[in-house]
């Protein structure tokens, strides 16, 4: 599963390019052909515009019933299938309202999209359980939902992050949170390191790409020299990633877990951010991460400087 995107690349997507360019970024890059689901809505319009301004290769969008029209200078299609046929799209980003978002994820997978990035917040959990199960039969990777998306610096911004923060460099970021990702990226850039790819995996209980899978992608990316892993209370994704790093890690990993001060039993904004048992706490997660050799910071203000230290760079 973790290699599925790379596999997809080799098979159909970037074919010759992949072979000639070994320094390929992960998930999205300048050659990605991106469509926007929920293209003509308010959020879709605003963020697709921002993505295009960043230089992202947006090839069109999907809004059922508006096929055949044009929006932001790009063609609009009724279905993802039509969009893929007409444009060769391999990446999709979703700004579809929560009630229809799981359906849109399944449509993208069914149409052969390789990387599906779901921004939508508030999708019913039962819908996501079904959608995640459904897309397993396709050769695709889901990122999110309830996430800020993915950005490969200077190449493609497929998300809602402020692009100017993510200056090109050598550190990959994996995070459950949106704004905390921007914070970390800003610090990393100011420490003189810069970003390769930042992946917002999302804060919902059911998400497509796990912390471990995202860390693994970055670990295998030749351009990435260090990895920042940002988690929060609830679930065991960070612990699983930490154990994987202990076994397979070849690059320094800096970690932060938000929610040290969160009370037990309360949902802190993200649907998945809730302390149930002992292992859900920030303290427990950080302990496991430390045991696994991850450079854990207690203060979110120290992420950039810790990464510089771990890479032996003086800021």
């Amino acid at each position: 599963m973790a290699y599925c995107f790379v596999k997809t690349n080799q098979k159909h997507k970037f074919g010759a390019l992949y072979k000639t360019n070994q320094n390929m970024s992960i998930l999205v890059n300048k050659d990605s052909k991106i469509i926007v689901q929920g293209f003509t809505g308010g959020e879709g319009t605003f963020h697709a515009g921002q993505m295009i301004d960043y230089g992202t290769n947006v090839v069109g969008g999907v809004t059922p019933g508006k096929g055949g029209t044009e929006h932001l200078g790009k063609p609009v299609f009724n279905t993802v299938e039509e969009a893929v046929k007409a444009t060769g799209a391999d990446v999709s980003i979703l700004f579809v309202p929560p009630a229809f978002a799981a359906d849109a994820i399944m449509e993208a997978a069914n149409a052969g999209i390789g990387v599906i990035i779901a921004i939508t917040e508030g999708i019913p959990v039962s819908d996501m359980v079904k959608a995640k199960d459904y897309i397993k039969q396709f050769d695709c990777r889901l990122v999110g939902p309830n996430c800020p998306g993915v950005i490969t610096a200077d190449e493609a911004k497929v998300g809602i992050m402020p692009g100017f923060v993510f200056k090109k460099g050598k550190v990959g970021v994996v995070s459950k949170s949106g704004t905390l990702t921007y914070e970390a990226a800003d610090q990393i850039v100011k420490a003189g390191l810069g970003i390769t790819t930042a992946i917002g995996i999302g804060g919902d209980p059911i998400i497509g790409t796990t912390t471990k899978e995202a860390v693994e992608l970055l670990m295998n990316d030749p351009e990435t020299e260090g990895i920042v892993m940002i988690g929060e209370i609830g679930g065991n994704l960070e612990a699983k990633a930490a154990r994987w790093v202990k076994e397979h890690g070849t690059k320094p990993v800096v970690g932060f877990i938000a929610g040290e001060t969160a009370p037990k039993g309360r949902t802190m904004g993200h649907a998945g951010a809730i302390v149930g048992g002992h292992e859900d706490t920030a303290e427990a997660k950080k302990a496991i991460m430390r045991e696994c050799g991850i450079h854990v910071v207690d203060s979110p203000a120290d992420i950039g400087s810790k990464m510089a230290e771990a890479l032996g760079v003086t800021a």
């Binding site: 949170s177 905390l180 990702t181 929060e232 929610g259 904004g269 979110p300």
Partner: peptide
Amino acid sequence: VNGAGLAMATMDIIKLSGGN
């Protein structure tokens, strides 16, 4: 704060600064 993750991180930094 905007964003749940940054909000939790901000709470943590308040604690680290001697507040609650």
